[in-house]
Amino acid sequence: MIGWPFSPSGALALGAPQARTVSGLVSAYADRLDRAEQVRTRAVGSWKLSKAPLRAPAPPRKKPELATERGHITGKGLPPVITQVPTEDKVVFLTIDDGAEKDPELLRMMRELDIPYSSFLTDYVSRDDYGYFRTMREEGARIQNHSVTHKEMPRLSLAEQRKEICDQQDTLEKEIGERPTMFRPPYGAYNRDTLKAAAECGVEVVPLWTAEAFADRMEWGRGDGKLHPGDIILTHFRGKGQWGGSMTDMVRLVVRTATEQGYAIGRLEDYV
């Protein structure tokens, strides 16, 4: 768990005592890691897990080259559409869409268990509390684009799609402080105009998914019901009123599933 004298980004906080030697810096970093691991170990039981989530391997020094997967639209100048990251690492990626449910317990769970994840936000359900997502970003999550109003992209003109994507790029840059590099179309529905608009708005990749997580079950895009290296897992910001469980129930299920199958949860942006 990161705390004073470390800032949310992991750097030494302003006003913290400074280590005066390289060995002092190394010692301070080691102490921080040790404290974080102690918190994580204690959190396993409090979040009703039998095992700690596996630690993701170090990110690749060079990110894998991405290409649009078979069966998806491709073309010169269009961002690649993927459902899986090309890697041999036993790592999968958790992504959470829309922003409707803003459960503080989700933030606490992800912080204490040190689970990386990415959030794809839709403005009309996120705008009532962007502060929640700023906290999320400060604690290490990444924020990406899921449109302004969550409309089905192929039903819109090119100009309308461009507005849905570009306006949300601008909003997230203003609210979160970082311009997204990824766009996930609502419902996974897109056409060539979607990709053209996304490219014009500065989007570099369009990640879809291979599995979807709910509070009580996993739904699989493949028939084997198993995770594979580089799989992207989709879920949503939902509460008990929508799916009969909490966000923390969903995370618990994802962690158990990944851990039992020998997979760590990594940060999508470390590979893409």
Rank of each mutant, 00 (worst) to 15 (best):
F6R: 14
S7F: 11
S7Q: 12
G15Q: 07
A16L: 10
A19C: 01
S23F: 10
V26R: 12
V26W: 09
A30N: 13
R35D: 08
K48Q: 14
P53I: 03
L54A: 06
A58I: 04
P60A: 01
E65D: 11
L66P: 05
G71E: 06
G75L: 08
K76F: 09
P79C: 09
P79W: 07
P80M: 08
I82S: 01
E88P: 00
E88F: 00
D89N: 06
V91P: 04
L94K: 03
T95I: 02
D97S: 13
G99A: 13
E112R: 14
P116Q: 09
L121K: 08
T122H: 00
D123C: 05
F133N: 03
A141Q: 04
I143D: 06
Q144L: 01
H146N: 03
S147H: 10
P154R: 10
L156C: 12
L158C: 02
L158P: 00
A159Y: 00
R162I: 04
K163Y: 00
C166K: 14
E175P: 00
E178S: 15
R179E: 12
P180Q: 06
T181H: 05
M182L: 14
A189N: 12
A189Q: 08
T194I: 03
L195H: 12
C201K: 12
G202H: 10
G202D: 12
L208G: 00
W209M: 08
T210M: 12
E212S: 08
W220G: 05
R222D: 13
K240Q: 13
G244A: 11
S246P: 08
T248P: 06
V251A: 13
V254K: 07
V254A: 08
V255R: 04
T257A: 09
A264E: 06
I265Q: 00
V272Q: 02
